[in-house]
Amino acid sequence: MRDPVSEHGRSSGVSAPTSRIEAGRMISAHFDTRTRINMKLALDRICRNRPRGEDHGFRRSVAENIVRCALAGRTGIGQLVDAGERAVVTTRAVPKPD
């Protein structure tokens, strides 16, 4: 299984969670409370008022970018929101399969 937070197929050193519970534990193990709160706020801020904001695939794409950003040590709310916005731009640029 490919690492969900790797970029271009390169491993980020974090094994891929196989369930929502494992994903939650991975987040809890790697980040302090303030970072987790900032990550959730960033995700909610990006997805709020977006036409696809409740779409699971859209939220997942945004969340993966936010996690990547936090793993790189950029944990401020502004940095995490910027990472989420980059995911929105990238998601828009990828053509939908027919």
Score class of each variant (00 low, 15 high):
Pro51Tyr: 12
Ile46Lys: 00
Ser19Tyr: 02
Ile27Glu: 01
Ala16Trp: 02
Asp32Arg: 02
Val14Gly: 01
Glu7Phe: 09
Gly53Met: 08
Ala87Arg: 00
Glu64Leu: 10
Ala83Pro: 01
Ser15Phe: 13
Val94Arg: 10
His30Ala: 12
His8Ala: 13
Val5Met: 02
Leu43Val: 03
Ser19Val: 05
Arg74Gln: 13
Asn65Lys: 09
Thr18Gly: 15
Ile21Asp: 14
Arg2Leu: 06
Gly76Ala: 06
Gln79Ala: 15
Arg34Asn: 12
Gly13Asn: 13
Glu85Asn: 01
Asp98Ile: 08
Asp82Phe: 02
Gln79Thr: 11
Gly57Val: 10
Ser11Phe: 10
Val94Met: 13
Ala83Leu: 06
Leu71Lys: 02
Thr18Asp: 12
Pro17Glu: 04
Val67Leu: 06
Arg68Trp: 05
Ala93Gly: 04
Glu85Met: 03
Thr75Leu: 02
Ala72Ile: 06
Ser6Gln: 12
Pro97Phe: 07
Ser61Lys: 13
Leu41Val: 07
Asp82Gly: 01
Leu43Tyr: 03
Arg45Thr: 14
Asn49Arg: 12
Leu41Gly: 07
Gly13Ala: 15
Ala72Phe: 07
Ala23Phe: 09
Arg45Trp: 09
Asp82Met: 04
Val89Glu: 05
Ala87Asn: 02
Ala16Thr: 13
Ile46Pro: 00
Asn49Trp: 07
Thr90His: 03
Arg20Ser: 09
Arg59Gln: 15
Gly57Ser: 14
Glu64Ile: 07
Gly9Asp: 10
Lys96Glu: 09
Ser61Met: 12
Ala83Cys: 08
Ile27Leu: 11
Arg20Asp: 10
Ala87Cys: 04
Ala63Ile: 05
Arg36Ser: 07
Ala87His: 01
Asn49Phe: 08
Glu64Phe: 06
His56Arg: 07
Arg50Trp: 14
Ile77Glu: 06
Thr90Asp: 11
Val88Phe: 02
Leu80Asp: 00
Gly76Phe: 00
Asp3Arg: 09
Gly57Arg: 08
Ile37His: 02
Ala72Met: 10
Pro51Gly: 13
Pro51Cys: 07
